[in-house]
């Protein structure tokens, strides 16, 4: 099982991450939040942050989550730092999971997506309590939380595929190391394309 320690230097395609974050934000604000089956439940941005954390590790995941969350706070004209703090936690948590465990298989994205969505929902509730806004634990809240977790699980795989499509840079195969350079990350079964073949 390939692991990437936090001490490894990872090449992060910043421009592509900005693109992925922007697409996630636009999808969330302009589509997902306005579609009735998802409204108030599905959080695509959290899943994008989770995928970035799984791909690049805890620190890039945390920074990406913070940045995307801050922009979302600004876009939604609300108390700044809420989404930033929560997405930071999601990105960091996903990244640490990749660094410590390197989860394998696509299906593992289902519980991870559910966990990310649950973290956002519960994190918001906790912040509301801490900020003095009050958070009543009633049937509606529980139902919304369950829906968020469900949508998180269902959307995790397609969102992760989208993020990979955008941010993973596929290099041209060199004749001398075609096997080790291109297919190693997937041969290990890990979710991260960053295997030993890409370490610098």
């Amino acid at each position: 099982m390939a692991t990437v320690s936090s001490g490894d230097r990872i090449e992060v395609p910043r421009g592509r991450l900005v693109l992925a974050g922007s697409i996630g934000l636009i999808l969330q604000v302009s589509l997902v939040s306005q579609v009735s089956p998802f409204s108030g439940s599905a959080d695509v941005v959290a899943l994008v942050v989770m995928s970035v954390g799984l791909l690049f590790g805890s620190l890039p995941g945390a920074i990406f989550g913070f940045g995307v969350g801050l922009i979302l706070d600004l876009l939604l004209i609300q108390t700044l730092g809420q989404y930033a703090l929560i997405y930071l936690a999601v990105g960091y948590g996903a990244g640490r999971l990749m660094e410590l465990r390197t989860p394998s298989g696509r299906l593992v994205l289902l519980p991870l997506g559910a966990a990310a969505a649950g973290t956002v929902t519960l994190g918001f509730g906790l912040l509301q309590v801490l900020l003095g806004g009050g958070a009543n634990l009633n049937v509606v809240v529980l139902r919304q939380t369950a829906l968020a977790v469900l949508w998180g699980a269902l959307l995790a795989i397609p969102v992760d595929a989208m993020v990979r499509k955008i941010v993973v840079v596929r290099r041209k195969a060199r004749p001398d190391n075609t096997r080790s350079g291109r297919s190693h990350a997937y041969a290990t079964g890990g979710l991260s394309p960053l295997g030993p073949g890409r370490k610098r």
């Binding site: 945390a62 913070f66 801050l70 108390t79 730092g81 809420q82 930071l88 900020l131």
Partner: peptide, 22 residues
């Protein structure tokens, strides 16, 4: 970096909490 980001988030929360215009 993590501590910095969390700190910035908390500062932002504190600074803009209850303010509609950020």
């Amino acid at each position: 970096v993590l501590a910095l980001l969390v700190g910035v988030s908390l500062v932002l929360l504190t600074a803009t909490f209850g303010s509609s215009d950020s």
